[in-house]
């Protein structure tokens, strides 16, 4: 037999078991979402097309946007100053549509390493970086990052030099955060496009460092 599944009565013609459909009843919040969406469409407040366009716009956002911002800050001192003064204005000026998001950029230096968390829910700079990774929303990451950030960093493979302070930023209210990582050594001759390829999503959350060139 090509496959060794226990119950051969329920195999598809391909030899694989049929995948279970999602037959569980809708949850309360799934019902509420559908009801609200249908009401908004019925009353002409929005259209199914507009909702889909917004979903597509959100799905098109990715950490590559943030990487371009970081690489420009590494190569353009005036932009870096503007980013640290008002990250929302600076990223909009670069051409990113971040909607109403209030963004703060926090800079990693030789003295301090920054980490972002949202202990209350899952606040994340989605309008720039796209959707957060699943672990960012987990209770373990949210609870542990404010209690033992160095242990969390170690599990991400990040060990900081002695004497470096860890600064955790809890997105408790209206602001969203992006870490401006330190530019890696050995990148002196690189342009912004090359540098952007070194900027990982995790390096902008603070659970990672940029790649080495």
């Amino acid at each position: 037999m090509p496959h060794d599944h226990a119950d051969h009565d329920h195999l598809s013609p391909s030899g694989h078991p049929y995948r279970k459909d999602q037959d569980a009843p809708l949850t309360h919040w799934q019902q509420m979402e559908i009801a609200l969406r249908e009401l908004l469409i019925d009353k002409g407040v929005t259209t199914a097309g507009e909702i889909q366009n917004q979903i597509n716009a959100m799905d098109s956002r990715s950490p590559a946007n943030g990487a371009a911002v970081v690489a420009r800050a590494w190569t353009d001192p005036a932009f870096k100053a503007a980013l640290l003064a008002d990250a929302s204005a600076a990223t909009r000026e670069m051409g990113f549509d971040i909607g109403p998001m209030n963004l703060i950029a926090v800079e990693n230096t030789q003295a301090a390493h920054n980490m972002i968390v949202c202990t209350l829910c899952s606040c994340y700079p989605r309008n720039l970086l796209g959707l957060p990774p699943d672990w960012y929303k987990s209770r373990a990451y949210r609870a542990r990052t404010v209690k033992e950030p160095r242990a969390v960093l170690a599990e991400f493979g990040v060990t900081l030099p002695d004497g470096m302070t860890v600064r955790v930023h809890d997105s408790t209210a209206d602001m969203r955060y992006i870490v401006l990582p330190a530019r890696p050594k050995g990148t002196e001759g690189m342009d912004a496009d090359g540098l952007a390829a070194l900027v990982t999503r995790d390096s902008m959350i603070g659970t990672g460092l940029p790649l080495a060139p």
Binding site: V146, E148, R150, A151, T165, V168, H169, D170, S171, T172
Partner: peptide
């Protein structure tokens, strides 16, 4: 400030937005 003697590293910090 937050964890007292149980702090992982007493000089590390937590910044939070508070009304």
């Amino acid at each position: 400030d937050v964890w007292g003697p149980a702090a992982e590293n007493p000089d590390d910090t937590i910044d939070a937005e508070i009304y």
